[in-house]
């Protein structure tokens, strides 16, 4: 009788552990599908947003990122409700290398080996211009910087001094890699 009781306890414990393990493993496999869903919904959101909020992309101020972030979060969250495999925790917009970057942090709604995940996608308005007009080349420099920028560059938030492009080059300023103003080959 004692032997049977110890077998039952062992079996129950083993079975439970195995079931938990299998659930986690299944969830881990399912993460691939969930990731795919997040990626495609995010891409759809980008395509939707770039036409709707196109003019806002021209702005370049910090409020642009805030507006974009709220819009993108709302759209993606509503899509997530249709596929309850993941939950959007946080989204963030930042301006990097001349384009907006959308960072999405999400987690799975089921057990898996993985915790929170991050996805980063570049984004721009449907029709934005690069500010390169070639004519009447006026660029901008800062009080202490060594680069010249276009009028709407992020780096001009503290100081903004207009200068003729050719003069800027003569004075040794270099082109900002982020906003890529007029560049003359030397």
């Amino acid at each position: 009788m004692d032997d049977r009781g110890s077998i039952t306890i062992e079996a129950v414990l083993s079975f439970s552990l195995v079931m938990i393990l299998l659930m986690i493993l299944s969830g881990t496999i399912l993460t691939v599908y969930a990731d795919s869903e997040v990626e495609w919904r995010a891409f759809e959101t980008i395509n939707t947003l770039q036409y709707i909020v196109g003019p806002i992309f021209e702005d370049g101020h910090s409020s642009t990122e805030s507006v974009l972030n709220q819009s993108a979060y709302l759209v993606l969250s509503s899509k997530a409700e249709e596929h309850p495999l993941y939950e959007v925790l946080e989204t963030d917009f930042s301006y990097r290398d001349g384009i907006y970057e959308w960072t999405i942090e999400y987690q799975y709604t089921f057990a898996s080996l993985f915790g929170n995940r991050t996805l980063k996608l570049p984004m721009n308005g449907a029709l934005v211009t690069d500010e390169l007009t070639f004519e009447g080349a006026t660029v901008y420099v800062t009080n202490y910087g060594e680069k010249y920028h276009t009028e709407t560059c992020y780096h001009l938030r503290k100081s903004k001094i207009p200068i003729d492009l050719e003069s800027a080059i003569e004075q040794g300023y270099e082109a900002c890699k982020h906003c890529q103003p007029n560049v003359l080959e030397e």
């Binding site: 770039q50 001349g98 384009i99 690069d130 500010e131 390169l132 007009t133 070639f134």
Partner: peptide, 11 residues
């Protein structure tokens, strides 16, 4: 790719 195509030259 979409961001590249959407950024058009002003001139």
């Amino acid at each position: 790719s979409e961001t590249m195509l959407s950024s058009n030259n002003s001139y």
